[in-house]
């Protein structure tokens, strides 16, 4: 794994990275409460608690008009790409004013206004789509880049091979990010994966692959910056393999009894990306008070976001038949 030279750290960026991770954490803590305590989130949500450094570090390398394709575990990516937290929470609650008008929910969250072209309920499906978004960008002669995030489990699906091969032969500006939390739902990914995993597979297809401690947000941000710069300069697609850990169950309802008892606790204690960044910032001379303020600000924001989302009405019934298709629209004729 890559070593980061802390001396070169820029305190302002380090604070921003912490603030974004705190916002993601607070958003998901509220979303879990909304699901479990309030019964307001009716469908499944897949929290990324403990993985916030991947989202914050990668997305800070992007401009608003760069493109992101995300996964079922995509709240953090979406927020870090610039989506509005209230619109996201409304979407999780299936409310009017949700990013997708309440039609998508957590697993289909999208905000095209900030280049976020969708989470995906089908593991691995976003890999070919992301390659294609880059293909379209290249055809139109734009200088934007695409980040395509997927889990360690997705590398065992066909689109991983097809999408990466595609991006490579068409020389497309894609940063493939494997957010490796070591689990495929309830199964340890290593136990069902041949060979050395995402980076090795990408290398075999001719991609440069960088393996990074995904809970070190500075390292993630630096690696993403470097890859983004190469892509913007016309470089070929690359793989960024981030090693992290999923601290919660697969969904908010999953007690995760299938894993070693102390595994999650140990990760929380020793490898929490937020705690690590706080330590780094403290070492740079930022006071505990200032760090607590960052934490508290995020908490206050997201508590208000949930309250506001919960007070929002459900979408109008007749939107159920809108935005299916224009030709042969069910709003005109559904039978």
């Amino acid at each position: 794994m890559k070593q980061v030279n802390t001396a070169t750290h820029n305190t302002a960026r380090a604070r921003e990275l912490l603030a974004m991770m705190e916002r993601i954490r607070a958003f998901e803590e509220q979303a879990i409460l909304a699901a479990e305590r309030d019964k307001l989130v009716l469908g499944a949500i897949h929290p990324s608690i403990g993985q916030e450094a991947c989202a914050a570090g990668v997305m800070q390398a992007l401009n608003t008009d760069d493109i992101l394709l995300s996964t079922h575990r995509g709240h953090g990516h979406t927020l870090a790409k610039g989506a509005d937290a209230l619109a996201m929470m409304r979407e999780l609650l299936g409310r009017e004013g949700g990013c997708c008008g309440g039609k998508g929910g957590s697993m289909h969250i999208a905000d095209f206004g900030v280049g976020m072209l969708g989470a995906n309920g089908v593991v691995g499906a976003n890999i070919t789509i992301g390659a294609g978004a880059a293909h379209g960008i290249k055809l139109m002669g734009d200088n934007r880049i695409v980040v395509d995030v997927f889990g360690d489990g997705a590398i065992n699906r066909g689109p991983f091979l097809e999408g990466i091969n595609w991006a490579s032969v068409f020389e497309l500006p894609v940063m493939f990010v494997c957010e490796d939390n070591q689990y495929s739902a309830t199964t340890k990914t290593k136990s069902v994966t041949a060979g050395q995993g995402a980076a090795a597979r990408a290398k075999s297809l001719g991609l440069k692959a960088t393996v990074i401690d995904g809970n070190n947000v500075e390292a993630v941000a630096n690696a993403a910056d470097e890859i983004a710069a190469r892509l913007r300069a016309g470089g070929p697609p690359e793989m960024l393999h981030l090693i992290t850990y999923r601290r919660t169950g697969h969904t908010s309802f999953d007690p995760a009894t299938y894993r070693p008892e102390d595994e999650s606790a140990r990760e929380e204690k020793l490898n929490d990306p937020i705690a690590r960044q706080r330590t780094l910032l403290a070492g740079m001379g930022v006071s505990e008070d200032a760090l607590d303020t960052i934490h508290q600000t995020a908490q206050t924001e997201m508590i208000a976001v949930l309250a506001k989302a919960a007070a929002t009405p459900f979408p109008d019934d007749n939107t159920a038949f809108l935005d299916v298709q224009d030709t042969g629209s069910p709003a005109v004729e559904a039978f």
Binding site: A125, T128, G130, G136, M140, E162, G163
Partner: peptide
């Protein structure tokens, strides 16, 4: 790569082609 032809074309459609 039929899945990639379809998926990539879709991605390219979403960005305006």
């Amino acid at each position: 790569s039929e899945a990639a032809i379809m998926g990539a074309a879709f991605g390219a459609a979403m960005v305006g082609t």
